[in-house]
Amino acid sequence: MIELHDPRGSPETPSVRIATRPKSLYGLTIGLLENGKENADALIDRTAELLTERGATIVRARKPSFSRPAPTDVIDSLAHCAAVIAAHGG
């Protein structure tokens, strides 16, 4: 008997864990991630101003390429934040 193994993989859908949301932004550190496209910086600048008015502390980061996922060091720089906003300009 010949046993045939199909080398094709099957699409795998990873299970994703959604982070628990905070109850308030006041006093929290919020990360703002800019992807480098046009006006992403303006979106982030104004967001930073408004969230600061709401009592948040802002940490900013920028992706080296908008067409690639953020590299590990950029993600690491935001991993301590209570929440992140990622702005995709364009």
Binding site: V16, R17, I18, A19, T20, R21, P22, G31, L33, N35, A40, L43, K63, F66, S67, R68, P69, A70, I75, L78, A79, C81, A82, A83, V84, I85, A86, A87, H88, G90
Partner: peptide, 21 residues
């Protein structure tokens, strides 16, 4: 890529919101 970034951050326990057109 922005949604992938959000997934990575969510998996690390960081709630993430994305701005997009």
């Amino acid at each position: 890529c922005s949604v992938r970034d959000a997934a990575e951050l969510e998996s690390r326990g960081v709630p993430t919101v994305v701005y997009a057109n």
